[in-house]
Design a protein around this nucleic acid. Structure first.
Lengths: 123, 123
DNA sequence: ATTACAAACTTGCATTTTGCAAGTTAATTG
DNA sequence: CAATTAACTTGCAAAATGCAAGTTTGTAAT
């Protein structure tokens, strides 16, 4: 598991928002955290199967990066990792929920989509 | 005011989170919205002066993109625009607040920074 | 009215990131 | 053991970012 290319973001200010965005200011990181938080996904293949079709190199890079930042951790063997959010990562929940609420309110197709996905996840 | 290079994001799924991230899934867009929402900034030069030192081409591109998406609008002449959030853009407030709260809780330097900035903005 | 200055972009270019698709390696299944 | 699948890695093109200089337009000063 080599170093992520994007994990060493140069800090640009002490603003709380800016510091948080240094951690999760890209859509792929947030989508992975969504998958873990809302759909209980834990494995590489599960993340890969999401509808957004993340590229394998981006997925791998982000899993490494999020692990380095302490937002997620994993168990299992080196090539069969099961990822999960750390307590630190769980603190991102209000952000994910706020993003979800905005989407539910403003994108009509998103409501049907969410019901379908929740059913599929059995949760 | 030409077309933004990044405004035509290809939609990857109907998930509400994904749709919202199609609008604001990059840190520069969120930082600009922060500047408007929390610091009352309205002009190109004010955004340019933020501590994160956004590049002029990125700032211009994002202002165009956010305008196209209906999140912000502007008054004034073509070369002296004063930007402001639309009602739609204001709905991003819970997201910005959630991001800010995470930062305030987890980055010790962020608290002092925020107090200093609020004082400087006279708000 | 004219000149100087500053705001608001635009441009050129190098670097980095993303995205696609194929390839390789390691683990599991039959 | 061979076949299959999961989990990456790699090559490369396109897109985005970032720096810094340049150009255009509006305002301020005289």
């Amino acid at each position: 598991m080599v170093k992520s290319k994007t994990s060493a973001i140069k800090k640009r200010s002490d603003c709380p928002i800016s510091c948080t965005l240094d951690l999760v200011g890209d859509k792929w990181s947030l989508l992975i955290i969504r998958d873990m938080m809302m759909f209980g996904k834990t494995t590489y293949n599960e993340f890969l199967a999401s509808n957004e079709k993340i590229a394998t190199n981006i997925l791998n890079d982000r899993l490494i990066s999020l692990t380095d930042k302490g937002l997620i951790t994993y168990t299992g063997s080196a090539r069969r990792k099961k990822y999960q959010l750390t307590a630190f990562g769980m603190e991102l929940k209000p952000i994910i929920e706020a993003i979800a609420n905005f989407g539910m309110k403003n994108f009509t197709k998103s409501k049907a989509y969410t019901q379908k996905q929740m059913k599929a996840a059995g949760k």
